[in-house]
């Protein structure tokens, strides 16, 4: 296990370095002079030069890269051009909101998908199965930038049951969480159904029934537990999709998280902040994938890098 852990961690380091390099390259992709692009075409030359110095764009590229990596390693992501606030601090103040939304969306997805998947698998080929299948396909086909506004119109504007935007009370969380969690719920329901169906065919389930275990017990205590391994992996791997989806959901519901911060900073051409947000989301994503792999290694001891 220790060897697997060390090997997996070692494999992550070049990926993280690559991610940081790509994020650094982003600012140098700006056509022409990045400082000019940030300040606009009409900016005075002195202002452009001052910004170039402030961002270190007047130094050789290799030196800029070294300074960027050293900064990232220290947790220093530069300062926001608009508010002068350190980028790391701006991001950290938004983390709780995004985590709250992501957790609520995951909870919605798991709460809906697992029972739906179990019902569909147990009643394979019946009306309930077809209904669950159709619901799952609908959930996957509906993009959240469409579902979100639709939910807001129906439940906030027309019915007035829930607040239309912002953060504060648990009621504020309901619509964004459903909007973000719907697609994940659909994918998880499909996976739960397929994985459980596979386990139900195994002889150990029949053996449990032969020993006198009731059908619900054979399904839930025996087959379902084993069917959870791919489902847990999928939940971890889908975290990236939830983070990206959060960028859209936070924009729809004015949710003060990192996604909204990213879109706002793009609007203001606050590139250090854009860079910081992208790096933070990407590193979180890599971290979640690493964690998923490690959990998978614990759940299924056959998985090894040898």
């Amino acid at each position: 296990m220790l060897r697997y852990l060390v090997r997996r961690l070692a494999l992550t380091i070049p990926v993280l370095l690559g991610v940081a390099t790509l994020v650094f390259a982003l600012i140098h992709l700006i056509p022409g002079d990045p400082a000019q692009a940030m300040l606009g075409e009409t900016a005075a030359q002195e202002d452009v030069d001052a910004l170039r110095r402030r961002l270190g764009l007047d130094r050789p590229l290799v030196e800029q890269y070294g300074l960027f990596l050293a900064g990232v390693a220290r947790g220093d992501l530069g300062t926001s051009l608009r508010t002068n606030e350190p980028v790391a601090q701006a991001i950290l103040t938004r983390v709780p909101a995004t985590l709250e939304l992501a957790a609520a969306a995951m909870l919605v997805a798991i709460g809906v998908a697992i029972p739906l998947g179990i019902i569909a698998a147990v009643g394979r080929g019946t009306f309930v199965d077809h209904l669950a299948t159709t619901l799952a396909l609908t959930g996957m086909s509906v993009p959240n930038f469409w579902l979100g506004p639709l939910l807001a119109i129906a439940f906030a504007v027309e019915l007035g049951w829930l607040p239309v935007s912002g953060r504060g009370t648990p009621a504020h969380l309901v619509l964004p969480a459903i909007s973000l969690g719907a697609a994940l719920a659909a994918i998880l329901a499909r996976m739960t159904r397929a994985s459980l169906l596979e386990e139900l065919r195994e002889p150990y389930v029949q053996a449990a029934r032969a020993r006198g275990a009731s059908r619900p017990r054979a399904v839930l205590r025996h087959a379902f537990r084993n069917s959870l391994i791919p489902v847990v992996t999928l939940i971890g791997l889908q975290f990236g999709a939830v983070l990206t989806g959060a960028v859209i959901t936070e924009t729809i519901f004015a949710w003060p998280g990192i996604g909204r911060l990213l879109i706002q900073s793009i609007g203001f051409r606050d590139y250090p902040l854009v860079q910081g947000c992208i790096l933070f989301i990407a590193v979180t994503y890599v971290g979640m994938n690493l964690l998923t792999d490690l959990v998978y290694g614990v759940l299924d001891p056959r998985i090894r890098y040898d």
Binding site: V15, G18, V23, V247, A282, Y285
Partner: peptide, 23 residues
């Protein structure tokens, strides 16, 4: 290695970043 790094990014996020800097 290039594939690994690009796959380490959530796809849409990278597209957002690219469009943000390219215009």
């Amino acid at each position: 290695r290039v594939i690994d790094v690009l796959l380490a990014f959530p796809g849409l996020l990278l597209a957002i970043a690219l469009v943000a800097v390219l215009g």
